[in-house]
Design a protein around this nucleic acid. Structure first.
Lengths: 202, 202
DNA sequence: TAATTATTGAACACAGTGTTCACTATGAGC
DNA sequence: GCTCATAGTGAACACTGTGTTCAATAATTA
């Protein structure tokens, strides 16, 4: 089956398949896509498809993995906190960088978020976000670790999940809200809490 | 096609199909399920299935809708705020009630959250949560509406999305963490913000 | 009980799957 | 450039599931 090949023919074929696949996903439901559709749009024989992927689910899996790998790598080892104190500038900068990345890889994220029946894309993405987030927090030596370990579990889940939802909504809005605008609101919610962010008296 | 029938045979058949369907979803991937599987497990003819549903996607749709309708109805018209001030007890009580509901409808939520390829369950659920949430907030006449309408959009998305993620995690933990424990943490995150909740200096 | 209608099961054409095989074409390495 | 290895082709194959039909049967209603 698939092993890392340097043969130009292989590289071309795979690229054609993956490209075409994203294109088709932007037009059609994943469930409605057939291997035949993909093969003919990629201008390869249907049998050739099976030389590279087990089936369309395998293809989807690989495309998702590649996309998320690239994304998570952007979370690069920076610290947004200095001595347990929030660096507002760093967080804001980080959020902006992330949203810029999403905008750049627009095609991938649109295909994944808005195709009605991509199995598990959001879950996958959230898992990746979460584990990276937990890693970062793990290195921070927080007082809450001893005092309230459950909070240490819950908060990253809460936040990573929230971010995926926000991201999806942002794409729905044609990603026309600027990174700065979003980043500022996120910072307020993160530091003051959702209720105070709405102007509620707490 | 389907219209509300009172014929006992119809009621029985539909109930059998929907019951069986949930059972099968707890054992098998949705994609791997065939109409034949469902029909034979429900002890009906395959043709009979098509007298009630267009296909397995239609069935899924209907089961999801019913489940979410029941759930959203629990959000019943209460106010968790009094004169723009948070009522901690009411929010806590509300969150606990919700989690109790989830526990009771365990079979449904497990089937939906953990079946690897249920198309769109989380999205659907989030949409329903969000719209209910927005309704509630809309009735509250908040100062932020004028000052920062974008925040009014973002915050409910952030929170409803976060809640779905938390819920899914809770089920993964076999729902063995008590409603009280969860509710307390959620309240802290909501009122103080995720960062302060972790004990960070903001 | 009679009339109605839901269910049955077998048959049908159809579409997509994943595999195979002999043949062709194209890149890799000398 | 030439040669060898191998990727891609396209047609054929059996197979599984789909969604529909139809006459016969069973259950429900009134």
């Amino acid at each position: 089956m698939v092993s890392e090949s340097t043969d130009l023919r292989v590289i071309k074929t795979r690229a054609a398949i993956e490209m075409t696949f994203l294109d088709l996903l932007l037009q059609k439901k994943f469930n409605a896509l057939t291997v035949k559709d993909i093969a003919s749009a990629a201008r390869i024989g249907r049998g050739t498809f099976y030389l590279h992927f087990l089936d369309k689910y395998d293809l989807l899996e690989k495309v998702i993995d590649e996309g998320l790998n690239e994304t998570v790598e952007r979370f690069h080892p920076r610290t947004y906190f200095v001595d347990g104190k929030v660096s507002f500038d760093r967080i804001t900068g980080f959020v902006q960088t992330m949203f810029r990345h999403f905008k750049k890889n627009d095609r991938f994220f649109r295909a994944m978020f808005f195709n009605e029946d991509i199995p598990m894309f959001r879950q996958r993405m959230q898992e990746r976000f979460l584990s990276k987030f937990q890693q970062e927090i793990g290195q921070m030596n927080l007082p809450v670790i001893e005092k309230d370990p459950l909070m240490l579990k819950i908060m990253p889940i809460f936040v990573s999940s929230a971010m995926i939802g926000l991201l999806s909504w942002w794409f729905e809005q044609q990603a026309k809200i600027s990174e700065e605008e979003i980043a500022r609101r996120i910072l307020v919610i993160m530091t003051q809490g959702p209720l105070r962010a709405l102007g509620l008296d707490v």
